[in-house]
Design a protein around this nucleic acid. Structure first.
Lengths: 120, 120
DNA sequence: CTGAATCCAATAGGATACTG
DNA sequence: CAGTATCCTATTGGATTCAG
């Protein structure tokens, strides 16, 4: 991700937030976190709510969120085994911190196609 | 936010915020917007403040932000010509909305390497 | 100074098939 | 149900060079 090292954007917070942004800015990731905060728990629930995300990517995203302790994965020994993905307290905090941004997003719709990406 | 249950995430405000997240989650983009709100104006100022960003990418990012009207580009006829990139009111609003997220980022440091990306 | 053009390597991500 | 394996294409982003 961002190899922010010695001195970049003026000290402190910017590199931290860029890391967070680059994490949840990955496709579906923010959405996954939000549905987690809304109560999604099982793999299939996430798959249903975040429509169009494929299994592979959903698994990758959940693992990424687990790796940074925003989501906790729990195996429930039943038949068949259930897996539960619940947001950690940090995960809930993050979604809460996202609220002003959600309000902004509703006031100013950003069309995906309007933003040119890298090459082209 | 609407209680979980009835709708897919795509139908709600979540798709909107995901668009915003995917935009500013691109490398350097959030940082660029933040330094813009902090007062950066000229190309070289951005280049200096967001250290390590290359000209091409900085230009791409600025154009992307301009395309969605978060930054405004103005040509000042002088010798040599000066180009000024200033945040629009929406851009300032966005950075303001980012504040809680910045606070979060300082409380919970997300280590970049801890998050696996796509294939692996 | 302010970029645009180009080339290239790495990564992200869509889609399908398969498994315990 | 809850993933993994695999394949393949598109996108990203680093680095350099060129130009008004």
């Amino acid at each position: 991700m961002a190899p922010f090292g010695d001195r970049r954007i003026d000290d402190s917070a910017c590199q931290q937030i860029q890391c967070v942004l680059e994490l949840i800015g990955q496709r579906w990731t923010g959405a996954i976190l939000i549905v987690a905060a809304r109560g999604a728990r099982r793999f299939s629930e996430y798959r249903t709510m975040v429509d169009r995300v494929f299994d592979r990517l959903l698994a990758v995203r959940l693992r990424a969120l687990e790796a940074v302790h925003l989501i906790e994965r729990t195996v429930i020994p039943s038949t068949p085994v259930q897996i539960r993905y619940a947001p950690t307290s940090a995960g809930v905090e993050l979604v809460t911190a996202l609220q002003p941004l959600m309000d902004f997003a509703q006031r100013h719709v950003i069309t995906p196609t309007a933003a040119p990406r890298s090459d082209g």
